[in-house]
Write a protein that binds this DNA or RNA. Sequence first.
DNA 1: ATTTATGCAAAGAATTTGCATTGTA
DNA 2: TACAATGCAAATTCTTTGCATAAAT
Lengths: 174, 174
Amino acid sequence: VIVITVITMNPLRDLPRRAPSWQDVRARLASYIAERGLKQSRQRDAITEVFFATPGHVSADELVLRVRSVDKRVSVATVYRTLKLLGESGLASSRDFGEGQTRWESAVGRPHHDHLVCTQCGKIVEFANDEIERLQATVARRHGFHVESHRLELYGRCGDCGPARGRARDGEGR
Amino acid sequence: VIVITVITMNPLRDLPRRAPSWQDVRARLASYIAERGLKQSRQRDAITEVFFATPGHVSADELVLRVRSVDKRVSVATVYRTLKLLGESGLASSRDFGEGQTRWESAVGRPHHDHLVCTQCGKIVEFANDEIERLQATVARRHGFHVESHRLELYGRCGDCGPARGRARDGEGR
DNA sequence: ATTTATGCAAAGAATTTGCATTGTA
DNA sequence: TACAATGCAAATTCTTTGCATAAAT
């Protein structure tokens, strides 16, 4: 599946378009590492640099390929370990679009947002909608919950792929 | 993790409370099977009966245990195959709450709904909110998408578990 | 030096599948 | 009797881990 991330204008609230600053990322990761007595390494640097240079939503698998095109000497395990580290440091966040693998994206300079996923071509469009967020909080409160996080994904056909030919499949609830 | 499903009153729209009719389920499955030239079997019947007698959200694993308490001679593979069949027939639907395994619930007499998941005790509360649904459709349309399905899960602490002691973890975006 | 990071291969966990055999219509 | 369903174990897929070794502070 080809996954393309498109950040589009959102009439309700534009997602910031400024690219994550590599300087900023590097500094934040360095301090995170220093604070915990961890160590830097060639692999960590390479993986991090490639990750933040990659737009959209990458899987560990894809990241391994990309990193190796730059530095052959990086193992799969280290990529997994580094992604985990980036997640813990708050620099990256993971998503599961139900493909059976986890996808990662930069969390630097990127406030919360949700996703529209094209079931035909795999395109992923990000969006943010304060009104939906507000309603979610209201619903949760009504049930005595205090929401810590949520996940919202809309699956359907994007403009380019047009309407489904057959009827929408059912069964798999979503 | 103990998962308890609680169907609560929803001020915006009550979820129907009528239990799925076993007669109805049996008939619908039978016709689905007949239409496709498939065959019934002791295992299929047992799994289906136990599944629809189980409230809430079961994993394949849990279902295997339950079915085996009634009939030892049911394999894991058959449970997986039967759940898949129930999904295809529209009688059951699957959900992934990010636990690394798929959970299934009856889709008979149960219109679309979303879930609130307690990150502490695992309790799952269902809810439906037309306004959120409407906004989702609006957002999608705005991006040229035609929504076929969606998934919305709110994660947080339920009333019984109270607020988190530490600070909410970050990194793992949701 | 001390402690963390890495590579590799083995281990896991959930789910699927090939195939000989059993069961159903 | 034909063809679908089952059991079982092997295979898959994604991810994690144990451990000896390399590297960083």
